[in-house]
Computed example of a mutant assay.
Amino acid sequence: MDFSPTTAIVTGADSGIGRAIAVALAEAGADVGITWHQDQEGAQGTAREVEGRGARAVVSQLDTTDLGSCPATVESLVKELGGVDVFVNCAGTGDGTPFLDLDLATWQTTVDTNLTGAFLCMQRAAKFMVDKGAGGRIIAVTSVHETQPRVGASAYDASKHALGGLVKTMALELGAHGITVNSVAPGEIATAMTGNEDVDPHTVERPGIPLGRPGDAREIAAVVAFLASKAASYVTGASWPVDGGMLLMGPQAGSHLEGHDWRSA
């Protein structure tokens, strides 16, 4: 319980869930490294929000399909921050391509972004934590599709299933070093990725979700911030669905569908 994080890195923090996580960790007292892929202006906006909470922000570009650059980017951020106590992998993508239409290049881009690049970044962060010898927190933002599939998302589902499995193995191996490793699995969240950026999720009706609405990015960030804190010292190897009850609806939704619209993405 003496773990007190002062430095954090959040990949994919230029908008949406990543931005909310960076701000939440800053509010918890951590300086934050922020990565962006294409939206540098968005990353600078996140940095201003982090600094507005009294924390220091460091910004760097990260393309997780450029596998050779992933460890070096983490190293650079760690050097600028002076360490890394918390590493949050939030960078990700989806392609929405049906299995029979999925080409190798699209498959590779999705898997490299969501899985292989994540592996390289988390491994480098973990090595820094082990060398420091003071424990740490690693959190991967996965998806409800870490455990349940979606039509038209073969590569995405495969990468998120695999990332969830990687997290569990990391938890087994890194526990001896005082490092906890968990995943947070969002359902539908009101972000640009779901077409609801800057929309109050309480105004969007979702009858198929028990809570009746999409989630807010800050609701994901709150769970990540808990897992990054000393209060979560005995939590590791777990997947935390933050989905308004969406995963509970599998058999229920299946028995109540009246058409075949679900067969198309």
Rank of each mutant, 00 (worst) to 15 (best):
V10L: 06
E173P: 03
G92Q: 06
R19N: 12
F119P: 05
L248E: 13
R263D: 07
T6I: 10
Q40W: 07
P71R: 08
T35N: 09
D2K: 12
S69P: 00
L163H: 01
S159W: 06
E146I: 00
A153Q: 13
G212Y: 01
H161F: 07
D85W: 00
V58P: 01
T236M: 02
G96C: 05
S159Q: 01
T97C: 07
A192W: 13
A222C: 03
V84P: 12
A126H: 09
V32D: 12
S159H: 04
A91M: 05
T93S: 15
L100V: 12
R137L: 01
K79D: 13
P98K: 09
S4R: 15
Q148D: 04
T169F: 02
R48C: 00
I17G: 10
R150P: 00
S183L: 05
H145M: 00
T11R: 07
V151R: 12
Q252R: 09
A176E: 12
S264F: 13
T109F: 03
S60K: 11
D112C: 01
S229M: 06
V32T: 11
P251W: 04
A30R: 08
Q108C: 04
V50K: 00
T65G: 05
G42T: 06
I139V: 10
T64E: 09
S239F: 00
T93I: 11
A190C: 12
T116Q: 01
I17K: 08
T116F: 04
T46D: 02
G250V: 06
T180C: 14
T191H: 14
A118N: 04
D216Y: 08
L100Y: 07
K168L: 09
A158D: 03
G175E: 03
A8I: 02
V130S: 13
A55Q: 10
R206G: 04
L257Q: 13
A125L: 12
P5W: 03
D112T: 01
Q252F: 12
A105W: 09
V88E: 03
N182K: 09
W107T: 07
A225K: 08
A91R: 05
